[in-house]
Amino acid sequence: MTLATGLALSATACGGGSSSDDGTIVIGTKFDQPGLGLRNPDGTLSGFDVDVATYIAGQLGFAPDKIEWKEAPSAQRETLIQNDQVEFIAATYSITDARKQKVSFAGPYLVTGQSLLVNADSTDITGADSLQNNKKLCSVAGSTPAQHIKDTYAGVQLQQYDTYSACVEALKNGAVDAVTTDETILAGYAAQRPGLFKIVGKPFSEERYGIGLKKGDTELQAKINNAITKMQADGEWKAAFDRNLGAGGVTAPVPPPLDH
């Protein structure tokens, strides 16, 4: 198992990848997605992905204070895994055939779908089809939702930012008309700023979130799958979902079956 040096619960991991004797584990997640992976003002992290990753780490023998968190932006996830900078990544990481060429996945631990976030007073965007009239749509470079828009909705002015939080700020300031990504991510932003945004339309894709890890590491993959199965069975999975995403108006789904 790849262990790394660093202060426990440090949100700004440095180095990483080299074996050490301090008994920590480096886990990648998002730092800017409320309800999923968010760095709080006091430096701690919270969210559904964080809770899932913390549970998995516990099953692998690492207490919460032995976790070193490393930010894993969408476009950098494969690189972080391939360069041994993290042990695994839980960061709204959709399982796709293209990504399977570079990394392996455990899970999925959540199935969601791509949706749209607009300002609360918006009336002209009601779903994906209403984006075709040269609407400015924001998503994140390297993300599955951005690629889906390119492939399916050619009439949209897609603007790609580094983070979804930057997209949400652009929406708030009127620089874009809508933000698109998975419904659970959008629900986190809507819950963070009540009354400012709303989710419109029905999900128009299926995104299967998995735990990304080193390609071919079947031993770790099996251990993580076992941990996910246990988390679902003992009620911790639903409790984590409700705690982190319930306020955004998303009801906890039935846990998905794991790939084997």
Rank of each mutant, 00 (worst) to 15 (best):
T229F: 00
S46K: 07
Q157D: 10
T144C: 00
I224H: 05
W237R: 07
S46W: 04
A166W: 00
T180L: 06
S74H: 12
V111A: 13
P257H: 06
V140R: 04
G37V: 05
A72F: 07
R77T: 07
A252I: 00
F62K: 03
L36E: 10
D124G: 03
G43R: 06
G155V: 01
A240N: 08
G201W: 01
W237E: 08
A53K: 08
G248S: 08
K135R: 15
D234N: 15
H260F: 04
V140H: 04
D182Q: 14
A247H: 08
I25F: 02
T152D: 11
R99E: 07
A4L: 05
K66P: 00
A233I: 01
I185T: 15
G212S: 10
D32C: 06
Q192C: 01
E169T: 14
E78H: 13
L245Y: 09
T112Y: 02
T163G: 07
I95C: 10
D22R: 08
K135W: 08
A252V: 09
Y93V: 05
A98V: 09
D49F: 00
Q232N: 13
A91H: 04
P108G: 11
T12A: 14
K66H: 15
L220M: 13
W69S: 13
F105L: 03
G61W: 04
T152F: 02
E169I: 01
A13K: 11
Q101G: 14
G127F: 08
L137T: 13
V176N: 12
L186I: 01
W237N: 09
S165V: 03
D21Q: 14
A227H: 02
Y209A: 11
D42W: 05
F197D: 08
Q101V: 09
Q101K: 15
T29D: 11
K136C: 05
D84A: 14
G37S: 07
K30T: 08
K100E: 15
F204C: 05
K100I: 00
D22N: 11
G6I: 01
C167R: 09
T218H: 10
L258H: 04
Y109V: 03
A57N: 05
A53H: 09
L186Q: 11
